Simulated assay, not measured.
Amino acid sequence: MIVQRRAVTAFLAAAVLVVTAGCSSDDGGGEAGDGASATPSGTRSGASPSGRATEEGAPPAKGSVEVVRTVAEGLDSPWGLAPLPGGGLLVSSRDEGTILLVDEETGEKTELGEVPGVSAAGEGGLLGIAVSPEYASDHMVYAYFTSGSDNRIVRMLYNPDKPEGAQLGAPDTILRSIPKGTNHNGGRLAFGPDKMLYASTGERYEGQLAQDEESLGGKILRMTPDGEPAPGNPFEDSPVYSLGHRNVQGLAWDGEQRLWASEFGQSTWDELNLIEPGGNYGWPDAEGEAGESGFVDPVEQWEVAEASPSGIAFAEGSVWMAGLRGERLWRIPLKGTETSADPQAFLTGEYGRLRTVVSAGGDKLWLTTSETDGRGSPEGGDDKILELRVK
């Protein structure tokens, strides 16, 4: 196994603190590696008693993962997962174009409705979902999906008092004209600590879109809840927050409100990046660490057979990264803007392809499997939501 730690340059750390075709598509193709964990290089100095990373300390070099229970099963191509503030998990089905409400205690599933306009094909369909930071007052659910002509972001009113299957209001499109393709549609949605909406987009196998500041493809976008370019964005009157991305599908913030993103490589390196406002992450001119002026190198990189990463979450001082082709959950312990020990792989091959991981608070994570999305070969069951305890 090859896992290499890469430090972010000093200018990246400062900038982030101020603001806060190829063979690898969705799964990387071919056979996954053996899944053995990387050998930790030893506990770093300054580990906090709680094991949670701070600017002064780091989590333990070695962690652990316990599968507490299966929350729900029988899911069809689950892609996005968003906890509701009052309880319950919203789950988007990429291929069905529907959103389910899953009771996290009983596993009971309720269909809220089908999102109109979804055109599912290849890696496209109903992808990321997010809940408004003002959900208590506006009850808005956001979704990223592939239509017949583009990828777009919509918001819908969720009304649980309406009949099952009719609880989603008509979609209000807040951003359209994101390039679509059979593959490389990005799709992750998340509200940041600044209450701005972030979205990851792919370059639909046209690498130069990632370097085109005028294109929405191959980017991380930052916008207001109404879809307008967010105040303080690096490019005037543009939602573009960072560029030079091939196909980002994971977004998460650490305890210091820094944004991290996971990215599919082509055939050599998958990446974990610390996102700098206005940063250029190199694609298609660089894959993995390039050491070239003007490009931001990844903090970590993996061979594509070991990762092909989708969702990420931050918990207990580490980034947790779900692997599709790699069929494993990676723990990447952090100290500030660098990793503090070698990444570890967990659940290797036990649950097949892993798609989305979301913090459930404290030392808990929600994790979805991704075997029924046209690439996996499920044996003995459909996709699941798992509850994990991690450290």
Rank of each mutant, 00 (worst) to 15 (best):
E256I: 08
T9C: 06
A210H: 02
P284W: 01
S308P: 06
E300N: 09
V67H: 08
D161E: 14
L347E: 09
L259P: 05
S137A: 12
A61C: 11
S149K: 08
L367P: 13
R258A: 11
E338I: 08
E289Q: 07
G352T: 01
Y142D: 09
E228V: 00
Y241M: 08
P116Y: 13
G117K: 04
S242L: 12
P49F: 05
W253N: 09
F11M: 01
S37Q: 11
P231N: 07
A36H: 09
L90N: 07
G181S: 11
I220A: 00
L251A: 04
V18H: 15
R331C: 05
G46S: 13
I275D: 01
S377V: 14
S149T: 15
K180E: 08
G187L: 11
S370G: 07
S137G: 10
T224V: 10
I332Q: 03
E228H: 06
W260P: 09
L259V: 04
E104V: 14
S238I: 10
G326Y: 10
F295P: 01
G28C: 07
A15Y: 00
E292G: 12
R389K: 14
G374M: 14
D172P: 00
R389F: 00
L101A: 14
N233E: 13
D382F: 05
Q344S: 15
I99K: 05
V319R: 03
Y205K: 10
P40M: 13
R155A: 08
T372Q: 12
G125K: 05
